[in-house]
C-alpha cells in the first residue's frame, strides 16, 4: 500500500491582497458603526431641537414671568380672588388615589 502523504496546498495572500481584505473589512465595520450611531444620534437630536424651539418662544415673549400674566391676574380679580382661595381650591386643586387599594 502506497503511503499517503498529505501535501498542503499553498494559499498565498500577497501583501496587496491582504491590504485589500483589511480595507474591505474595515469599510464594512465602519459603515455599520456609522449607520447605528447616526440613527441613535438622530433619536436624541430631535429632543434638543424641540427644546430649543420652546426656549426660543420664551426669549421672544414680551412678558416672561407667570405672575406678570395680565390675563391670569384679571381672572383672579374678576373670578377666583387669589391663589389658594376657597374657589381656587375647588377648581384648580385635586386629590390623588391610592391605586394599590383599588381592586
Amino acid at each position: 500500500m502506497a503511503e499517503y502523504e498529505y501535501i498542503e496546498q499553498k494559499t498565498e495572500v500577497s501583501r496587496r491582497a491582504f491590504l485589500g481584505i483589511l480595507g474591505a473589512a474595515g469599510a464594512i465595520l465602519w459603515s455599520g458603526i456609522y449607520i447605528t450611531t447616526d440613527i441613535f444620534q438622530d433619536r436624541n437630536k430631535y429632543i434638543k431641537m424641540r427644546a430649543k424651539g420652546l426656549y426660543k418662544d420664551d426669549t421672544i415673549s414680551k412678558i416672561r414671568q407667570s405672575h406678570n400674566n395680565h390675563a391670569v391676574a384679571a381672572m383672579y380679580k374678576e373670578f377666583a380672588q387669589k391663589p389658594l382661595s376657597p374657589l381656587a381650591e375647588k377648581l384648580f386643586h385635586t386629590h390623588y388615589i391610592d391605586r394599590t387599594k383599588l381592586s
Binding site: A51, L54, D57, D58, I63, R64, Q65, M75
Partner: peptide, 18 residues
C-alpha cells in the same frame, strides 16, 4: 383672547426643567 395669553414662563413647561 384672555384664554390664549401666555408668558415665556408658561411656554417652557414642555421642557425638562421648565
Amino acid at each position: 383672547n384672555p384664554m390664549s395669553a401666555y408668558t415665556g414662563a408658561g411656554t417652557i413647561f414642555g421642557n425638562t426643567g421648565g
